[in-house]
Design a protein around this nucleic acid. Structure first.
Lengths: 168, 168
DNA sequence: TGATAAAGTCAATAATACTGACATAACGCA
DNA sequence: TGCGTTATGTCAGTATTATTGACTTTATCA
């Protein structure tokens, strides 16, 4: 590592964005941005009997239509028992449909019903609106940087799993 | 707004990063990055009797030394009763010191003890390491974009409150 | 002095997660 | 065919973090 007290001009550009203070600012930024990011859907969900867990399930079932229960468990990184309560509610309330697998009848493929799609829209509209405004205000270059850094912050496994799902 | 079906070359660069799909990808990115971002401290905290709430309290008491209980409540956006349990534990365990305010004796100013500083270090070291690696891999320009977009994603109130705290 | 403010507490409740144990149905191979 | 495994679902108990509501103590200030 370079001299902390007297960085040379040569190392200056590297040191500048690696100070502990800047890193801590980045950490706080993540915390507050995530909080803002979830506040819109949270507010909407209060009108229903659902919480953030239901939102996540709805989001990923919409994004990866027909995914299996195990896929959803992998994506969310929670236990079967945790998901069960949420999924049961969504199915009972007619937002999610669970179809027996065509090849393997042990599997269940998950889909949003029309009612489920409606709620998904309501939730993601709020979030997309916020993202769109942030993207617009920050500009295209900033967006690319934003995406790049976030990808690097993720766990390696998560990144790989996401890529696998994208290719399906 | 420009024609959605046939964007002209002029609006192309703007339209490109505002598609619903790209916005949804950004939303997922936030979710997974935040998950990775909290995984290191979560793992460390399992060795103690503490959770994420304790981490947040420790973090902000360290960042804004001597802040009042009400300041911390404002920052965290939780109720007094929620914070109370966490703060009581940290004070009883000797990680946080609560000093009677000098001007206004109703107030309590919060500080980390040596023991508290040690845990804060352990927790933030893990997070800083991850941030540093991500920043390095993404490069300085990306970091600037990352910060800019996150700031725009935050609530306006939060952004203002943060600025206010920074100036203190 | 009396209203207000800061902090702290008790009680009840909710959402989300966990571990452990077990049941059912279907697949797949020997 | 039968047995081990897999996918899903469920029940019970527990932990963490949050909520609302009600109340107390102490201190400030008009």
């Amino acid at each position: 590592m370079a001299n902390r007290n007297h960085p040379t001009p040569n190392t200056m550009d590297v040191m500048l964005f690696l100070t502990d203070d800047q890193l801590l600012q980045g950490i706080e930024l993540m915390y507050f941005a995530y909080k803002g990011f979830t506040s819109d859907p949270d507010r909407i969900l209060q009108n229903y009997t659902y919480g953030r867990a239901h939102h996540r399930a709805i989001h990923f079932i919409n994004r990866h239509k027909g995914l299996r229960v195990n896929d959803l468990l992998d994506i969310l990184g929670i236990t079967k028992q945790s998901l069960n309560r949420v999924l049961r509610q969504l199915i009972n309330d007619g937002l999610v449909e669970s179809r027996v697998g065509r090849q393997d009848k042990r599997e269940r493929n998950l889909f949003l019903t029309e009612k489920g799609v409606t709620l998904e829209r309501e939730l993601s509209d709020a979030q997309r609106k916020r993202m769109r405004a942030a993207y617009r205000a920050a500009g295209p270059d900033a967006v690319q940087g934003f995406r790049l850094v976030l990808e690097k912050i993720m766990d390696g496994e998560t990144r790989q799993r996401l890529q696998g799902i994208k290719q399906q």
